[in-house]
Amino acid sequence: MTVYILQRTLQSFVVLFVMSLIVFCGVNLIGDPIYMMISPESEPAEIERVIKEFGFDRPVLEQYWFFLKNVASGDFGRSFVQGIPALPLILERFPATIELAVFSLFISLVIALPLGVYAGLYPERKSSKIIMSGSILGFSMPTFWVGIMLIMLFAVKLDWLPSTGRGELGTFLGIESSLFTLNGLSHIFLPALNLALFKLSSVLRLTRAGTREVILQDYIKFARAKGLSHSRVINVHLLKNILIPVVTVIGLEFGSLVAFSTVTETVFAWPGAGKLIIDSVYNLDRPVIVAYLIIIVAFFVFLNLIVDILYSFLDPRVRIKGSSE
């Protein structure tokens, strides 16, 4: 067990190290950051001084070594554009991203669970077939285009909801979020719905498959035989049992929701971390790009590490087998 956890932890660090090396070298091969900081018309001596100061004349690997040393003390460098340290710049954007991901998860559950249960209970009905074909469509639709369509319909044509920004923030239990004000809610609704669509189809299919399986079980028959009402059998006996796999998958896929929010944030100008990375790529803001990519890779590596370790506790076969089949 301990060996397994140690192995996995070591592997996580190797992945993180390799990724940071690739990212750092990649970013340092493109663009000329000097002219981001001083005007090209500056004195040659001035340009020389800046190059020396930032170490741009050194070999990439040496620059990487300096970078690693700084990262170890929490310094990812300063944003070329905003002139403030990259790490806090990124971290202050994360709450907005997490808030969007959580709310869209909520929306996808509210829509997909009832539809999935319905399609699982009555698989032969025409309405169920429409729901299932709709889920194929939802699965195929490119998120960004759906976002544009939502803006066109609800923000431009009908003028019901705002399409950009985060709106007013409210504070509740020390957490600042758009979810606590009416104005904020109206701002988060469209982007969250857009992001929810991405998970909706998979939750729907999972719920339907679970329902079809559980409905045949003896405990459902027994509950019916006891004379419980239909709604109680569905809402308590069935729902409780299909929720286990659904919650597992959702937990696992939360990370991909955060990754995909980059797209939604760009479409709806949502001031989260994803929008920041796209803006930084436009501006060739090297320190922010490197810092963001390393932070997000670290986030995923450790998310996966935790999932792996939890799984090995729950299912001993995982740690015996080691690699997957």
Partner: peptide, 8 residues
């Protein structure tokens, strides 16, 4: 995203 943000 990692590849394209890093390499252009």
């Amino acid at each position: 995203l990692i590849i394209l943000a890093a390499f252009g």
